[in-house]
Amino acid sequence: MYRIRFHGRGGQGMKTASRILGTALFLEGYEIQDAPRYGAERRGAPIFAYVRADKKTINERGIITRPDLIIVADDSLIPVPAAGVLAGIVEHTVLLINSDESEQTWQHRLNIRNKIITLPVETEDRAELRFIGATCTGAASRLLGIISLASLEQAIKDELAELGPQIIDKNIHKAKQAYEKVAPNENCVSQGSEITAGKYLPPDWIDLPFEAAHISAPNVWASATSMKVNTGVWRTLRPIIDYERCNKCWWVCSTFCPDSAITVDESGQPHIDYDHCKGCMICVAQCPPHAIETISEQEAAAQDKLKEEETTS
């Protein structure tokens, strides 16, 4: 059985991507199972989707613990623990990453020896990755080596039927491009071995102790613990305040920030909490003297790195 996991952000079309791949495999005569997994989070938050494919009926269900192929639509998710990109990674797992960094960089950075294939990023704003699903499935199809171009094309037509011929054509074009690009790595994904009942690690079941309601009721006995959740990782664009242009108005930006992520200090100057700013850009749109700029997270990260290097040298 092939076990494939897609990682992306809410809004990047991972459900559609997994469905295109699922349909393509189905057209190739495989039994398939595909499903998105979403939690409470929304646009920009890490989500994943999975596809299983086999020549016989698939009885396995739910999360994929030992993936054969991990597809990462947005490389900024890899360091985010909540995204669980590397969960269950085994020796033969192949990673397909949409990233400007090289395979070697990722191997080094993640300290893994797994095969990594990267696809260069086409736009700075990750939220604008409209065709990332098609690109990823195009490449994945070649890596699996069991999907023809014709099936891939048909799958895109089937899954995007509602979007009209223009968008379908564009997606097909992107998928084909990626399909060609990874040609040297054709068929590099293999099916993992199955665990057997003869040799398995028994679960560490425990007897759950009784705990009184003052412990075991589903209550949070503290305030604003949500601040421990770094929703900053949802952000694909970063608002930056130009303090020379900021006129310390009646903190319009702070008032309109839906996430309480802009605080105002005693002098009336606003500060953006990047651990929590989700990148909605309302502040940019509302700032009276237009003192808040937008840059992509990628660019912002590069600038941060540069600054860091400057200070250390």
Partner: peptide, 13 residues
């Protein structure tokens, strides 16, 4: 995180 006191965890009474 929910501020259930740590020292109370695991108490069975």
């Amino acid at each position: 995180i929910a501020k259930v006191e740590r020292d109370e965890l695991g108490q069975s009474s």
